[in-house]
Amino acid sequence: MRSDLSVRNLVVNYGPVRALHGVSFDVPEGQVAALVGSNGAGKSTVLKSICGLLKPVEGEIRVGDELLQPRPGDPLRHGVALSPEGRRLFGQLSVEENLIMGSYAVRDKAARREMMDRVYGYFPRLKERRRQMAGSLSGGEQQMCAIGRALMALPRVLLLDEPSLGIAPIIVAELAVIIEEISRDMSMTVLLVEQNAQMALSIAATGVVLETGSVVLTGTGRELLESPEVRAAYLGT
């Protein structure tokens, strides 16, 4: 299977502290991949590097055959969009304005409108609240808005950083179904970063397990869900 996003030997430091020790993995085209691991394993560091928010010491990141430059804006040009950890909506802007900001760099008006309809289709609650300030939404609705905002960039690769964080379990289950749908409907490549390994691996075609800055396991979502190491470390069984 063709790899859409490939990370090769990624080394990242935070000041004197090494956060990633040569991380490599591939995300196959048009599928959901999960990047799981405990708090502090380096998951967000990987995502921030992919988005150009962190400058790696070593290593390279490619979308298709294109090498990404480590500055914000360049990955976007190659079709990478992020729904950041903690959602980070523009709180004083309305829901719809947040979505419009998602396609700030998209020139094609028709494509933008079509995607907005799709986003409202996946998340009808956003449509109901589209004039409301994003900061006044509930946690689950904010997460929907953050995913919608990332979709509005018309990405080829969608990065979702901890969408389940601080959200009621019933909404997490709902989000998982929609994330799967999004990937299937638009054959979009999705990298799902999660502490909630159960949720992530159950919808992921492939998975990568990160521990203290290194990849320790890879496999299909099902393999990892059933592997004794993952069960012991992340699923508490």
């Binding site: 150009g52 928010l53 804006g73 976007l76 969009a81 950041p84 909506l89 523009f90 960039a153």
Partner: peptide, 10 residues
């Protein structure tokens, strides 16, 4: 509201 996120969106 958020410079980093705004920059990520171009």
């Amino acid at each position: 509201q958020d410079q980093e996120v705004a920059a990520v969106f171009g």
